[in-house]
């Protein structure tokens, strides 16, 4: 793993570069376990950087969230690079964006960090409730150590890590200009426990399950906006002409929304779990995306965001591709 000082030192170095606009990392939030994305503009800002199991946002999203407002005539665009702290999943998102030409490799500086998984705050909620006090956390081998008001609590990672992290097979960056610290041994087997459980259920059971989950959706689109792969200038879910999905909030339209989104992520989802973590209604969106991740891997041996030179899955065709499910 890597210590904070090394990260900060390297970050300072990077933001000092002339060709770098800023470095995006994380800093402490305003209360409890919260951590927020942070833009390091000047070397001294780097002192605020943190890196812990609480860093639960995928920073690759910030690359595509950057708005391109019309520039006044004659003004040149800022061509400086954006530097990014990337873990396995952040880097996979960047790699997937590279293959989709959503990001120009020349325009990003990737500072790699090995990762041992992030905490799912919902799992923390009952046993270790959140307080106003800003709390800290760190990795310690197979455990997460919470530091709340000076009191340290060790928790086995199985109890609190995000489900996606528990089955993560890419804890180290797959693409980076430089990776700090020692690589982490992957701990997970190929599996999708949440998905398999549902797969084994009957059709009616599955239907009931999703009906109940989607019914609760408030259509705030946090899942879409937090997703590093949802970066269309004009999302078709917002389109009015034709209206693919009505604005009405009901089970049917909500389902259409989530299924459409899941299908747009086929062969693109990098399994970071951001969608599920941000959902204010607690919908287990990972299950639907991971089902498709699983199908794509099993049927086509494709894993998004692992090959910077690769052709995007949805744009690749091989006459030998399985198509038995069509008829």
């Amino acid at each position: 793993m890597v210590d904070l000082e090394t990260i900060r030192k390297k970050a300072k170095e990077i933001v000092s570069r002339e060709d770098v606009k800023h470095l995006i990392g994380w800093r402490k939030g305003t209360f409890g376990y919260r951590v927020t994305p942070y833009w390091v503009e000047a070397p001294e800002d780097a002192e605020e950087l943190v890196y812990s199991p609480l860093c639960n946002t995928n920073l690759a999203t910030s690359l595509t969230l950057a708005e391109k407002l019309p520039l006044p005539k004659g003004q040149e665009p800022d061509r400086r690079k954006t530097a990014l702290l990337v873990r396995g999943c952040d880097s996979r998102a960047v790699v997937q964006l590279l293959t989709e030409r959503g990001v120009d490799r020349e325009q990003v500086v990737l500072l790699g960090l090995p990762c041992r998984g992030v905490v799912d705050l919902r799992k923390l909620k009952d046993s270790y409730p959140e307080d106003n006090e800003v709390a800290d956390a760190e990795w310690k081998e197979d455990k997460i150590v919470l530091n709340v008001s000076g009191e340290k609590k060790e928790i086995p990672r199985e109890e609190v890590l995000d489900d996606h992290c528990l089955v993560c097979r890419y804890p180290n960056p797959v693409e980076a200009d430089e990776t700090l610290g020692e690589k982490v041994e992957p701990w997970a087997e190929e599996s999708h426990p949440g998905v398999e459980e549902l797969e084994n259920a009957s059709f009616d059971k599955r239907w009931d399950f999703w009906e109940k989950e989607f019914e609760r959706c408030i259509r705030c689109y946090a899942c879409r906006n937090a997703c590093p792969m949802c970066y269309c200038e004009d999302c078709i879910l917002d389109r009015l002409n034709p209206t693919w999905i009505y604005r009405s909030n009901n089970y049917s339209e909500n389902t259409a929304f989530h299924i459409a989104r899941a299908f747009h992520l086929v062969g693109r989802c990098v399994s970071c779990g951001a969608c599920e973590r941000v959902c204010p209604a607690g919908i287990p969106l990972g299950k639907i995306n991971q089902k498709l991740v699983k199908e794509v891997r099993e049927k086509y041996e494709f894993e998004p965001g692992t090959d910077p030179e690769g052709v995007p899955f949805q744009a690749s065709y091989n006459p030998q591709d399985q198509e038995d499910f069509i008829l």
Partner: peptide, 20 residues
């Protein structure tokens, strides 16, 4: 206005008719 330049179309076009 809405094209994001991902190039999926260039890859799938059976006539190589699309370029970025």
């Amino acid at each position: 206005a809405t094209c994001r330049g991902c190039g999926f179309c260039t890859e799938v076009c059976p006539y190589s008719a699309i370029e970025l």
